[in-house]
């Protein structure tokens, strides 16, 4: 127990950095996902095919490849991003691309009558999408979004590959000094489990709080 406490203290800076990575990229990823999802349906032909290509690439590349491309590849165009910025950008792009697919599916599942009613009330297309369609679609996309955020919590550990001092990276250095791999990596697994379980709980809560009285939704 004492060892665990010491371990947590030793890892605390990494724990904070990991939480920080997630706290920034989760909301940004959800926002990007909502934007891309809406654009892929309401963006017109050209814009929606650009979005389609963009999501196909981002969901087809492993996150690690995207991250390494941003960190090591962008400087070849004269764009220099630090490790943390590169990691954040790759998390937001990747989770945004995946979330957009859920949002798109959710938008398409919404009854056409909603759109007709909004138009009958004299709303513009933008008003209709922002005030009528998206709030409902995002609610329906919560289970998918929750999955993606939980994936992102786990994949945040990959930021170590470009030198971000998050908790995996710190654990690995610590292990090379005190060499207690079993304890260190078990503690690390428990930390991620706790984060994922917490995220899962929060999304369930959000889902219940935001539920609209609709007969077709459980």
């Amino acid at each position: 127990m004492d060892f665990l406490l010491e371990l947590l203290t030793a890892l605390s800076s990494g724990l904070l950095r990991t939480v920080e990575l997630i706290a920034i990229s989760a909301p940004c990823g959800i926002a990007l996902g909502a934007l891309l999802g809406a654009l892929s349906i309401y963006g017109g032909r050209i814009l929606s095919s650009i979005v389609k290509l963009f999501t196909a690439i981002l969901t087809g590349f492993p996150l690690l490849v995207t991250m390494l491309l941003i960190f090591f590849g962008l400087p070849e165009f004269g764009i220099y991003l630090g490790p943390t910025e590169s990691a954040l950008l790759s998390f937001v792009l990747c989770s945004g691309a995946y979330i957009s697919q859920y949002v798109k599916g959710a938008i398409m599942s919404i009854d056409e009558g909603q759109s007709l009613a909004a138009r009958a009330l004299g709303m513009t297309r933008a008003q209709e999408v922002i005030y009528i369609i998206l709030p409902q679609a995002l609610r329906r996309a919560i289970p998918g979004i929750s999955n993606e955020v939980i994936y992102m919590i786990q994949y945040s550990s990959l930021a170590f590959a470009i030198g971000v001092q998050e908790v995996y990276s710190i654990s690995k250095s610590l292990n090379s000094i005190i060499f207690r791999p079993l304890e260190i990596f078990t503690a690390l697994a428990l930390f991620y489990l706790a984060l994922c379980t917490l995220a899962n709980f929060l999304f369930k809560l959000a889902r219940r709080r935001l539920r609209v009285m609709e007969s077709e939704l459980p």
């Binding site: 945040s156 990959l158 170590f160 690995k172 791999p181 990596f185 078990t186 697994a189 991620y192």
Partner: peptide, 11 residues
């Protein structure tokens, strides 16, 4: 499902 692959691999 809650443990990152990287952590599982290291463990």
């Amino acid at each position: 499902r809650g443990t990152p692959l990287l952590v599982l691999l290291s463990l």
